[in-house]
């Protein structure tokens, strides 16, 4: 037993971590929770600062011994270290920098946009009790009340269009994966963009390389295994409040 993973439907950060665990052959005890119902805030989970103040919002929690860990890209780095499957991070320092900088872009620009659009399209019903972070609680209230700001939603659509363009350009040299070899960057990018085909279709009208990349990704056994854990037909349509839209710039 290497850890207990509390996770939601295989979308967004839960997808990244589930797929990374399968890629790496890490045998976690999986405990599915309903992120949209606010299960993550219940007393069944540990609540150190790293859980309650995670920048990611409603993401998975991995408990190893007495440590509860959050933030999907860093959980995937951890799984890469402890798992036996092929590496999901490049070994060369510069290639690794490229992967971390790419993931930072996804975390900072793409994820907040996707979460804002996803929550606006499928708002949660109630604000759960027990949310420790006031700013996360405010994002829940806005999501439940459908108070998304039109300017922010328009900007979020732009961010998704730009992200698809960026991936299309990255794949232009004919490579299969974003960093050359398959990596966490592929998982994290797909995690946030999968649900955007339905919500921002204009981003995908001329993206043949992105389409082929997504098909390759879905064909990976670990990805199929992660998506196979869904208990609803379209896990990419399930959203709970995510990272906040950068309040500084």
């Amino acid at each position: 037993m290497t850890g207990i993973l509390y996770h939601g439907q295989p979308n967004g950060p839960s997808f990244t971590v589930l797929a990374a665990a399968f890629e790496k052959g890490v045998d976690l005890e999986r405990r599915p929770i309903d992120l949209v119902a606010g299960d993550r805030h219940s007393a069944a989970l540990p609540h150190p600062i790293e859980v309650d103040q995670s920048i990611e919002g409603e993401g998975p929690v991995l408990v190893v011994g007495d440590v509860a860990m959050t933030d999907s890209v860093f959980l995937a780095c951890y799984l890469d270290d402890i798992g036996t499957g092929p590496a999901i991070r490049p070994a060369d320092p510069y290639a690794r920098w490229q992967m971390m900088a790419w993931c930072r872009y996804v975390i900072e620009r793409v994820a907040p946009a996707a979460a804002a659009l996803g929550n606006a399209a499928a708002p949660p019903h109630t604000v759960p009790a027990g949310i420790a972070s006031a700013d996360l609680a405010a994002r829940w209230t806005d999501a439940v009340e459908g108070e998304a700001d039109a300017t922010q939603l328009a900007d979020s659509r732009t961010k998704i269009v730009q992200a698809v363009e960026k991936i299309e350009a990255q794949l232009a040299d004919g490579r299969d994966w974003l960093m050359g070899d398959f990596s966490i960057a592929d998982l994290e990018s797909f995690a946030w963009l999968a649900g955007m085909r339905a919500l921002v279709p204009q981003a995908f009208v001329a993206s043949p390389r992105v389409d082929a990349w997504e098909a390759r990704l879905r064909a990976r056994p670990a990805v199929a295994q992660a998506l196979g854990l869904a208990t609803v037909p379209n896990p990419e349509a399930i959203w709970a409040p995510g990272p906040e839209i950068n309040r500084w710039g």
Partner: peptide
């Protein structure tokens, strides 16, 4: 230690983005 590495990254993100 990989858990400590995770914690270093968690804190850096928390500082950088919050």
């Amino acid at each position: 230690d990989p858990v400590d590495q995770w914690r270093a990254r968690w804190w850096m993100k928390f500082l950088d983005q919050w």
